[in-house]
Computed example of a mutant assay.
Amino acid sequence: MSHYHNPEDWSHIKKLGAHSPESFASFLAFDEAALRGKDNAIPPKYRELIAIAVALTTQCPYCIEAHSKAAQQAGATEKEVAETVMIATALRAGGGLTHGLQALKFFEKAAEND
């Protein structure tokens, strides 16, 4: 294995679909509706920028690649993608900060019980 992100990994998707056809088909239909549905109010470019932000926070390299390419095809600019990266980064850091507040709270409670 040379790298964890290898385009050849997609060859396993057929196995996934074969072993869990109903769930897999439902996932594909949901994914299609959420990202490319006919009744979506959010334009494709913005849906793809949102998808990039989520992919960055979930740290899915395949999603980052797919949605960055799709955003470019939907008319997003490099500046918009960069801004999306920084928004996702700020929110992910904010999550660390707020979870840190929880750590301090639990630490305090543990000290009170000693």
Rank of each mutant, 00 (worst) to 15 (best):
S23R: 07
F106Y: 14
R36M: 04
G17N: 01
L16T: 11
I52N: 07
A76G: 02
A76E: 06
E83V: 05
A82N: 14
L56E: 04
Y62R: 12
F24R: 00
D39I: 07
K14V: 14
L35D: 12
N40S: 13
H67M: 05
G17Y: 02
T58G: 09
A18D: 08
W10A: 10
S68L: 03
N40Y: 06
H67A: 03
V85W: 02
S11W: 14
F27Q: 00
A82F: 12
E32K: 15
G94P: 00
G17Q: 03
S23A: 09
G37L: 13
S20H: 08
K38I: 10
T58A: 10
T98R: 08
E48D: 09
E80F: 08
A90Q: 15
P61Q: 01
A41S: 07
T89I: 13
T58N: 03
Q59R: 13
A111C: 14
E48Y: 05
T57M: 07
M86F: 13
L91T: 14
A51R: 07
G95K: 02
L35Q: 11
V54G: 00
S26P: 01
C60Y: 10
Y62I: 08
H5A: 10
T84V: 05
P44C: 01
A53K: 04
T57H: 14
E32C: 09
G17S: 06
I13T: 10
S68A: 09
H5C: 04
K105H: 09
P21W: 15
K45P: 00
I50T: 08
G95V: 03
A25P: 05
I50C: 01
S2L: 06
G75H: 07
E48S: 03
I64M: 02
Q72S: 05
A93Y: 10
A88I: 09
T57V: 14
V54F: 13
K79I: 11
K14A: 15
K69F: 06
H5K: 13
A93M: 12
H5V: 09
H67Y: 03
A71S: 04
N40H: 11
A71E: 01
A66T: 11
G75V: 05
A41F: 14
Q102R: 02
E48C: 09
Q72L: 15
R92Q: 14
A51H: 13
K45V: 01
C60E: 06
L101V: 15
E78F: 13
M1D: 07
F107L: 05
D39G: 10
N113F: 06
A29L: 04
E112Q: 09
K14P: 08
T84W: 00
T89W: 15
K109F: 04
L91A: 10
G17C: 05
P43G: 09
F106P: 08
I87E: 08
I64N: 00
H67S: 03
T58R: 03
D39C: 03
A51C: 04
F106G: 15
K105V: 06
K45L: 02
D9K: 15
I52D: 09
T84P: 06
K105D: 04
A74Q: 01
A34Y: 13
N113C: 12
K45C: 04
H3T: 11
A33Y: 15
L35V: 08
Q102D: 01
T98N: 12
H12P: 09
T89M: 12
A18I: 07
A70I: 05
A34T: 06
L35P: 06
D9G: 11
Y46H: 13
A82C: 11
F107H: 07
F106T: 08
A33L: 12
K15L: 06
H99I: 01
H3Y: 04
A18N: 07
